[in-house]
Amino acid sequence: MATNSDGARNTKYVTMISGDGFEFVVLREACLLSPTIKGMLRGSFSEAKTGRCVFPEITGPVLEKVVEYLYYYHKNVNVPYVPDMEIPVELCLVLLEAADYFQLDKQMT
C-alpha cells in the first residue's frame, strides 16, 4: 500500500474503521456511493491522505452491514429487480441512523 499522500488517493481500497476497532478494507469505487465518504476522501483531509476513515460513532456489526450494503449496491448497479438484502430487525434502527449518517437515504438512480 502506498504511503505518500498522492498514492493513497488512488488506491483501489479504502479502510473503514469502526469505533470499536474493526477494520474493513473496501473497494474505493463501492465506497464512493456514500456522499459522506466521498467527502472524506476528497481534498486534504487526513482520510484522503491515508485512505483510512474512522467512524467513532459506529460499531463493528453496523459498519459491517453498511459495507455489505455498499458491495450489494455496487454489485447490482443496472441489475433489474434486485433481490432484497437481509436486514436483521435488531439492527434496523441503528442502520437507519447509519444510513442517515452516510447519506444513503435516497434513491440515486
Binding site: 449496491y73 448497479v77 441489475v79 434486485v82 430487525v89 447509519a98 438512480t109
Partner: peptide, 19 residues
C-alpha cells in the same frame, strides 16, 4: 424496469415496518 438496489435507509425502514 427498476434497476439497482434501493437506498439503505429505505431497506432499514422496511425492516422496521415489518416488525
Amino acid at each position: 424496469t427498476p434497476k439497482g438496489a434501493p437506498p439503505l435507509f429505505e431497506m432499514a425502514l422496511r425492516a422496521a415496518a415489518r416488525y
